[in-house]
Design a binder for these strands. Structure first.
Length: 583
DNA sequence: CTAGGGTTAG
């Protein structure tokens, strides 16, 4: 077929400036009048606009595509890309399959990129592996962009190790590829690995941008790596990235999660803000138990014209609950639906149950669960059990456990909580029953660990850890620390296994010796200058013995020790803890 | 002459 080149070129130019569908349809009429509807570049351009542009129309693109005879690779790419970024990415896979099996046009790097995006979004690991195979067969496995897509796709499907293998095999890596690897680790929870990638990166001289910093800062938040975070803050400042909201928000979160709310506030005050910025501040105050501040920031957010979403309320309610602001919390809870049109989710109900429970109103907490749509979920019952522990209430504790049991959801932590309640009631048989339950039912325990950051390195410890290179020194130091703490008044909880108030799942892992945070504390004391604060992050809740230990250590060594456990922050200072021994 | 990487909660 012969086309009139000058007319075709004119139409292509007009198409490039097209920004809405009505206009496109007028151009299309023009195309038909001139007999150019089968001109490849023109039909591709129209198709691409419809499939990809925000003002396009995917259903219309779908319609157009059906009428193309023998679509070329570019046309397939447009339709695959359109569906990959649409609410139904599986359609992209459908077109990819058709392209491979029914079409003479072969896939290229673009095809693979878009298809991988779709696999990532719908979590299609099998398809990802299959596409990976095709990439190797067609010889595209050396392409940086395609490999970056593979890294993300494997990472998003929970295969960080395979993502890393693809990454390591890339013949050349640019900044985007490095950033993808960092965010893959960070989102998969491999925070130490994410931070380690940064060291490799600096050796390779690829530079750093906002994306790099955001991924790294997110990992710093999770492991409480304040020193590293501060270093990244400095880099952001040098590179003029402090006005980048993504970077700013990641910094706010990092400071808040590392227990430095002043730092968070300082960043917050010096940047353009969006909903994330407000939420990070509110959540930050909330998890530290500063309800008044969370409420203040919530109101400021409203004044700034930002509509609160469910996360803002989560932070707000968490703060109210930990500070004991029951009336305020319940008020906000009702306003969620009545005033802000935010539907309370299970987590919000959890805050309310916790709020009443913590305040000692256990019957009211029980009533809330009964009125909630989540009686069949273990989460709320578990919170009730935890409240029963704080108030040593055997009756409600047993009700909570019975419900957990009926749901088949009893875990080791639950048994420990109830055993602790029994122990406080001097019910040795009750404790023995819980111990037996765990043993006979083979209930799984979560392995406990603690992180501590010393200079730029994050060190991780488990119970009775001997794997650290400085292990010998650490145990020696621990003896000294225990001795000094004892001189200050610490009495070791000698009972084996959750008697007389020990209450962490970590107590199940070992009948004696040292929980992970004691090792982290000893290491921190040995490796940091006198007077500096120690920051520890652990994945389980602190047990009574370690809590007492840390209080006396903070006094004996005159150190602030900030422990972030699974649920909240404990600021130890001068022999006292900010949780006032309620947790 | 169409690609790839970003923050809160969980």
């Amino acid at each position: 077929m012969v086309f009139e080149t000058s007319k075709a070129n004119a139409i292509l130019t007009i198409l490039q400036g097209c920004n809405n569908l009505t206009r496109l349809q007028k151009i299309q009429a023009h195309v038909i009048v001139n007999g150019l509807q089968n001109h490849p570049a023109i039909s591709n351009s129209i198709l691409n606009f419809c499939a990809v542009s925000i003002s396009g129309s995917l259903p219309y693109a779908h319609h157009l595509f059906k009428h193309i005879q023998n679509p070329q690779t570019q046309a397939w790419n447009s339709i695959i890309r359109g569906f990959a970024q649409s609410p139904s990415p599986f359609q992209a896979i459908f077109y990819y399959n058709r392209m491979l099996f029914d079409s003479v046009s072969g896939p290229d790097t673009f095809t693979f990129s878009f298809t991988l995006k779709a696999c990532e979004r719908i979590k299609a690991l099998k398809k990802c592996e299959e596409v990976h195979g095709s990439i190797i067969r067609t010889g595209y496995e050396r392409d940086v962009v395609v490999c970056t897509g593979l890294v993300r796709c494997y990472g998003g499907n929970g295969c960080a190790e395979i993502a890393r293998m693809v990454f390591d095999n890339m013949p050349e890596k640019d900044l985007v590829a490095w950033n993808a690897m960092i965010s893959c680790y960070s989102q998969a929870g491999y925070h130490q690995e994410a931070l380690r990638i940064y060291d490799n990166m600096t050796n390779e001289n690829v530079g750093v941008d906002g994306f790099t910093l955001v991924g790294l800062l997110s990992s710093c938040s999770h492991v409480g790596a304040l020193n590293m975070g501060v270093k990244l803050h400095r880099i952001a400042s040098e590179k003029g990235l402090l006005r980048n909201v993504f970077v700013g928000n990641a910094l706010i979160d990092m400071y808040a999660k590392c227990g430095n709310l002043d730092g968070a506030l300082e960043v917050f005050n010096g940047m353009p803000r969006d909903m994330f910025s407000w939420n990070s501040m509110i959540v930050g105050f909330g998890v530290h138990g500063f309800g008044d501040e969370a409420i203040y920031f919530f109101n400021q957010m409203l004044e700034a014209g930002v509509r609160p979403n469910s996360i803002a309320f989560l932070g707000l309610l968490c703060g109210c609950s930990h500070q004991g602001l029951v009336e305020e919390g319940v008020g906000f809870f009702h306003q969620m639906s009545s005033k802000f049109n935010v539907k309370p989710g299970i987590k919000h109900f959890g805050c309310i149950v916790d709020m009443y429970g913590r305040a000692g109103k256990l019957e009211k907490a029980l009533e809330i669960i009964g009125d909630s749509p989540w009686q069949d979920d273990p989460v709320l019952w578990r919170i009730l059990l935890s409240s029963s522990k704080i108030h040593k209430n055997v009756v409600i504790g047993e009700i909570a456990m019975r419900n957990l049991s009926q749901l088949g959801a009893v875990n080791a932590g639950d048994c420990v909580l109830l055993a602790t309640i029994y122990a406080g009631d001097n019910d040795e048989q009750g404790v023995a029953r819980m111990r037996k339950l765990i043993k006979n039912q083979g209930i799984k325990t979560t392995p406990g660990w603690s992180w501590i950051e010393v200079s730029d390195q994050v060190h991780r410890f488990v119970v009775d850890d001997k794997s650290h290179p400085d292990s010998g020194m650490i145990y020696q130091k621990l003896e000294e620390v225990t001795h000094k703490a004892t001189m200050a008044g610490y009495v070791k909880d000698k009972s084996q296994f959750i008697f007389h108030g020990s209450c962490s799942e970590e107590c199940l892992e070992s009948s004696s010796t040292y929980h992970s945070e004691k090792l982290a504390i000893a290491f921190g004391l040995a490796k940091t200058p006198e007077g500096t604060s120690l920051r520890i992050v652990k994945n389980l809740r602190v047990c009574r013995d370690c809590h007492e230990f840390t209080k006396f250590v903070s006094q004996a060594f005159n150190r602030d020790i900030i422990v972030r456990d699974r649920l909240r922050f404990h600021h130890f200072k001068g022999g006292l803890c900010s949780c006032r021994d309620y947790w």
